[in-house]
Amino acid sequence: MLRRGFLKRTAAAFAGATLPAGRVLAHEGAAQAAVIPPREVAIAEGIPAGQIHVMPDEFALYWTLPGARALRYAVGVGRDDLYEAGTFLIQAKKEWPSWTPTPGMLEREPEVYGKWADGMPGGIDNPLGARALYLFKDGYDTFLRIHGTNAPSTIGTAVSNGCARLVNEQIIELYEKVPLETKVFLYPKVGMA
Score class of each variant (00 low, 15 high):
Leu2Asn: 14
Phe6Pro: 02
Leu7Glu: 15
Leu7Pro: 05
Lys8Glu: 15
Arg9Thr: 12
Arg9Cys: 09
Ala11Thr: 12
Ala11Met: 11
Ala13Ser: 15
Phe14Trp: 14
Gly16Gln: 02
Thr18Gly: 08
Thr18Trp: 06
Pro20Ser: 05
Leu25Lys: 13
Leu25Asp: 11
Glu28Pro: 09
Ala30Asn: 09
Ala31Cys: 06
Ala33His: 14
Ala33Thr: 12
Ala34Val: 05
Ala34Leu: 10
Val35Glu: 04
Pro37Met: 02
Pro37Ser: 09
Arg39Asn: 04
Arg39Gln: 13
Arg39Thr: 10
Ala42Pro: 06
Ala44Trp: 07
Glu45Tyr: 08
Glu45Cys: 06
Gly50Tyr: 00
Pro56Trp: 05
Asp57Gly: 03
Leu61Trp: 01
Leu61Asn: 07
Tyr62Lys: 12
Thr64Ser: 09
Leu65Lys: 14
Arg69Glu: 05
Arg69Tyr: 02
Ala70Asp: 04
Leu71Ala: 07
Val75Lys: 13
Gly78Leu: 00
Asp80Ile: 13
Asp81Gly: 12
Leu82Pro: 04
Tyr83Arg: 02
Glu84Ile: 15
Glu84Trp: 07
Ala85Trp: 09
Gly86Ile: 13
Ile90Leu: 01
Gln91Cys: 10
Ala92Ser: 14
Lys94Thr: 14
Glu95Arg: 14
Trp96Cys: 06
Pro97Glu: 03
Pro101Asp: 04
Pro103Trp: 09
Pro103Ile: 01
Met105Glu: 07
Met105His: 03
Arg108Asp: 10
Arg108Lys: 14
Tyr113Leu: 01
Met120Thr: 02
Gly123His: 03
Asp125Val: 10
Asn126Arg: 01
Pro127Phe: 11
Pro127Arg: 08
Leu128Tyr: 10
Ala130Gln: 04
Phe143Glu: 09
Leu144Thr: 02
Arg145Gly: 01
Ala151Tyr: 14
Ala151Thr: 11
Thr157Gly: 07
Thr157Met: 04
Thr157Asp: 10
Ala158Asn: 06
Ala158Ser: 06
Ala158Gln: 06
Arg165Glu: 01
Leu166Ser: 02
Glu173Leu: 11
Glu173Ser: 15
Leu174Asp: 00
Leu174Phe: 07
Leu174Gln: 03
Tyr175Arg: 05
Pro179His: 00
Leu180Phe: 10
Glu181Thr: 11
Val184His: 07
Tyr187Gly: 00
Pro188Met: 00
Lys189Cys: 08
